[in-house]
């Protein structure tokens, strides 16, 4: 899967470790939420970055106290039309103040990228078409009404002091 970060294709620094596989001695790894819960202290004690893969029903709040020690949170789109991860993303960013990498995985198509970015994602595992069309899709709609993770939207602002200047 091509991985896009800051608009460019990058190599994936993280290795996803299956629940029944042994942890490698070094290198950045991601584990499932279940494994994270079971092996939290040994994972944090490892002298290498760790990330967590959350399913759509895993509670983001459970990571609250460890977020500054987690290098990546991966959220899942099991199907393009399943939008639960958007809420998880916003909660991580806006409620819990998570600042690390937030990655969209699964059925990530280029026509959802704008929604993902505004919900706080910053890396995307896309298919070939998504990689090729990434920039165009991200630039397709630059105007947003509602406040979301990365911007306040124009619904509230354009009628107050920042009016006309903000409309562009």
């Amino acid at each position: 899967m091509p991985l896009v970060k800051d608009g460019a294709l990058v190599a994936d620094a993280w290795t996803r470790i299956a629940d029944d596989a042994a942890l490698p001695g070094d290198g950045a790894v991601t584990v499932s939420f279940k494994r994270w819960e079971a092996e939290r202290s040994s994972l944090l004690g490892r002298n290498a970055p760790v990330g967590v893969f959350l399913g759509n029903t895993d509670p983001v709040e459970a990571l609250a106290s460890d977020l500054n020690r987690i290098g990546v949170v991966m959220l899942d789109f099991p199907k393009y039309t399943d939008g639960r991860a958007y809420s998880q993303a916003r909660l991580l960013r806006e409620r819990l103040g998570y600042r690390g990498e937030l990655r969209a995985t699964g059925n990530v198509l280029r026509d959802q990228l704008l929604f993902m970015r505004r919900s706080g994602f910053d890396t995307y595992e896309v298919d070939e078409r998504g990689a090729a069309g990434f920039a165009a899709s991200m630039a397709a709609v630059t105007h947003a009404y509602q406040p979301a993770t990365n911007d306040a939207g124009m619904l509230l602002r354009r009628y107050t002091s920042a009016r006309a200047s903000g409309a562009k």
Partner: peptide, 16 residues
């Protein structure tokens, strides 16, 4: 109208 603007291409609620 306020709801229309808020809900238009809402990033979190477009795949309910």
């Amino acid at each position: 109208e306020i709801i229309r603007q808020w809900s238009t291409l809402h990033p979190e609620f477009s795949f309910l």
